[in-house]
Design a protein around this nucleic acid. Structure first.
Lengths: 349, 349
DNA sequence: TTGGGCGTCCAAAGCGGTTTGGGTTGAGGT
DNA sequence: ACCTCAACCCAAACCGCTTTGGACGCCCAA
C-alpha cells in the first residue's frame, strides 16, 4: 500500500493525503480524520526510502565501530551506550546505523557516510588524545557528538563526558583518608582520553596528599579480566606492595580481585579496591549493596544525553557546540577498608 | 556532486555514467575509464537514498533489540555478535540498522520495518520456546535468520545455532568421568531455547550415567555475575552440596567462582566448574591457557555465518531455508579436577 | 544495395514520497 | 451583483538514482 493507492482509494490527491498524515494545517479536519482512518485500516506506512529521498534527510544516526584486526576488541560499554541512545533514536523517529569497519578504514567510513548521505550525524566513541577523527568530521561537515572528550583537539565540538578527573581524585582522597599510601592504578590504554584524565585525577590527589607517584604502581592496558589480573599480580609481588587499587573498570576489577585472592589476601581487609562502575546492565556491581566501592556513572545516561544532543544539533545546524559534564558518584561498597598495619612479612609467595 | 553534475561534466548522459560505474557491459571501455577517473577525481559517491528508492532495496539488515523496561538487560553476547555480522554487512555493501524498542513494541517494530521498507531482512536474537516472533516474521514476509533455534516453531525457518545439547551432555560426561555425581546446573532463563537444550543435554548425560537429577541442583535465571553468585551460594549451602557446576556463561562463572571462594573452597580442588564460553572479546577465558574448562563456541563465527546466510537468503528469496549447526569444543582448563573424597564435614558455614 | 546485428549511447519513465504554486469554492463585505 | 479572501484541494515538479526502450552509426552477409 503506497500513497498513490491510498489516495486513489480515498478519492483524494496524494498531496492532500500526505498533508493530512503529516499534520499540515491546510486540510479539513473531517478529511484528515478520514485519511487517518483509512491509513490505519489499510496499514499504510510511508516508504522510508522515498521519504528520505524527498526530504533530503537520512533520518538516521551513524555509529562507526572500528575493529582492530589484531585482537578485535569490542568495547563492553558500547552495548549499553547504544542501547540507550537507540531508545532515543526510536522515540524521535531516527534509525541507528552501525558501521563495523577495520581500524584503518575508519576515516574512509566517515567520508563515505557523509558523501552518500547515509546518516545525518554520528556519535564518536572512545576518543583519544589529539584524536584525528574530530578534525576530520569537522572538515567534512558531518554533525557529531563525542562520547567523552579529546584533549588537544583544535576545533570546538560537542561532547558528553564524565568528570573522570574529579572522580578519580575523589576516590584517591578516599583511600588516602583510610590511611593508604601505596595505591596502585590499573587504568585503560594510556592514549585513551578517559585514562589520561583519570590518571591526572589520581596524580592530583596524591600530590595534594604529599605523596609522589610510583611508576611501578601505575599500569595501562586494555580493560579485560585477564589484564586486570596480570597487572594486580605484578604489583602485589612487589616488595613494597600496594594496599589499595584504583581500577578503571568493573571487568578489570574482577581480575584484580582474583589476583588478590590468589595471593592469599582478602579484598577490603588486606587490599582495598575502588573501581569505576559504568553500570553495565549485565555486570552490576552487586544487586542490593555494592560489592565494590566505586566511582559510579551511568553509561546509559550518557548515551541518552549524547543522542538527544546530536539530534538537537542536527535540527539546528548553525548553533554552537553543546557539552555536558556528568559527575560520578562515589559509592561506598565492601571492597575498601582502613589500610592494614605495617606488614609483618607473612605474605604468601 | 551528484550523477547529473558528473555526467554534465563528462558530456555524457546520466544513463551512461551510471552504467559505467556499475560495470554494465554496454559501455565503451575507454568511456568507462574516463568516467571512473572523473568519479575518483570529484569524489563522487552515488546517493544512498536515491539508490534505495530506485532499486527498491533497502540495502540494510535490521536487528531489533527489545529493552525490558524492568531491568533493561542487554545481552552481553550481542555486542560481539553484531560486530562480526557488521563486518560482513560492510563488506557486502549493506548497512546494519539497530532498532531499540520496549519489549512490548517488538512485534510492531518488525511490522514497521517491513511496511516502511527500512530493511531487507532481520536477524532474530535470543529465540525462545514457541517464540511468537518467528510466525510473525513468516507472516509479514520479512526474510530472517535466527541466531539459535526456537523449539516448537510450526513453520520452517533459517537459523545458525550451537549444538547446545551435545555440548552440555559432553561436559556432564566429562564431570561424571572425573567422579562427580552431584553436579549443579546454573543455567539461563528457562524459556530461552539455548537453556532448554543445555538442560536437556545435562539431563541426557545424567540419565545415561544412571543418575537422577536433583531439582535443588538446577537453577535458571538471567546470566549476571550476581545471579551466578547467588545460585552457587545457595547450592553450596546444601547439606549434600555439589562438587561440580555446569554454568551457562562466563559471567555467571565469575559469580560462581566468587561463591566458591567465599565458602572457603577452592575451584578445581574442591569444586569443579565448567562454563560455556562464547569467546567474548572483552571477557576472554584466560589469555594463553584457559582458566575455566569450557564448552567453547565462537559467537563471532555465528554472527558471520548468520549474516552471510541472511544476505544469501535475500538474494534468493525463493530458496528453501538454510541452517547451520556449530559444534562446541570442550576445552580443558584449570577449573576442573577429580571429585574430592567424601566430605569430612569441615565445611565452613 | 539492402537489411540485420552489434556496439555505444541517450531520453524518458519509473521508484514513492514532499513541496511549490496555483485553482476552485463559498462565505462575507460592499 | 461583484469582489475579496480564506479554506481546501490538486497538478506537477522534484529528490538522485536505475532501467526500459529505443536511436544511431557501422560492419558484414545476402
Amino acid at each position: 500500500m503506497n500513497l498513490k493507492e491510498l489516495s486513489a482509494l480515498l478519492g483524494l490527491s496524494p498531496t492532500t493525503v500526505s498533508r493530512a498524515l503529516n499534520g499540515y494545517p491546510e486540510v479539513n479536519e473531517a478529511t484528515r480524520e478520514r485519511v487517518l482512518a483509512a491509513a490505519r485500516r489499510y496499514n499504510y506506512r510511508p516508504n522510508t526510502r522515498a521519504i528520505r529521498l524527498a526530504t533530503g534527510r537520512a533520518m538516521s544516526i551513524g555509529h562507526v565501530i572500528p575493529i582492530a584486526s589484531r585482537h578485535e576488541m569490542v568495547n563492553p560499554v558500547f552495548a549499553d551506550f547504544i542501547a540507550s541512545a537507540g531508545e532515543v533514536y526510536s522515540r524521535l523517529g531516527y534509525d541507528m546505523v552501525l558501521s563495523v569497519v577495520p581500524d584503518e578504514d575508519e576515516a574512509a567510513a566517515y567520508r563515505d557516510l557523509k558523501a552518500r548521505g547515509t546518516v545525518d550525524g554520528v556519535i564518536l566513541h572512545g576518543p583519544r588524545m589529539n584524536d584525528p577523527r574530530l578534525p576530520l568530521l569537522h572538515e567534512i561537515g558531518l554533525p557529531f557528538v563525542v562520547h567523552g572528550r579529546a584533549t588537544g583537539t583544535p576545533v570546538p565540538y560537542s561532547w558528553c563526558d564524565v568528570n573522570n578527573r574529579r572522580a578519580f581524585a575523589r576516590a584517591t582522597d578516599f583511600l588516602l583518608d583510610l590511611g593508604h599510601t601505596r595505591i596502585g592504578l590499573i587504568n585503560g590504554l594510556e592514549f585513551m582520553d578517559f585514562a589520561i584524565r583519570r590518571r591526572a585525577g589520581y596524580l592530583d590527589a596524591l600530590a595534594a596528599g604529599g605523596l609522589v607517584a610510583d611508576p611501578d604502581l601505575m599500569s595501562s592496558n586494555e580493560m579485560t579480566e585477564g589484564l586486570g589480573h596480570r597487572a594486580a599480580r605484578r604489583m602485589l609481588a612487589l616488595a613494597d606492595r600496594p594496599t589499595a587499587f584504583l581500577v578503571s573498570s568493573m571487568i578489570l576489577g574482577l581480575g584484580v580481585r582474583r589476583a588478590i585472592e590468589e595471593a592469599g589476601l582478602r579484598m577490603a581487609r588486606d587490599v582495598s579496591v575502588i573501581i569505576h562502575d559504568d553500570e553495565l546492565s549485565y555486570l552490576r556491581n552487586g544487586e542490593d549493596v555494592p560489592i565494590y566501592t566505586a566511582t559510579r556513572s551511568s553509561v546509559r545516561e550518557a548515551g541518552r544525553i549524547a543522542a538527544e544532543m546530536l539530534i538537537d544539533l542536527i535540527a539546528h545546524p548553525e548553533s554552537p557546540p553543546r557539552d555536558r559534564l556528568l559527575e560520578a558518584e562515589l559509592i561506598i561498597g565492601q571492597s575498601t577498608g582502613p589500610a592494614p598495619r605495617p606488614q609483618t612479612g607473612d605474605r604468601t609467595p
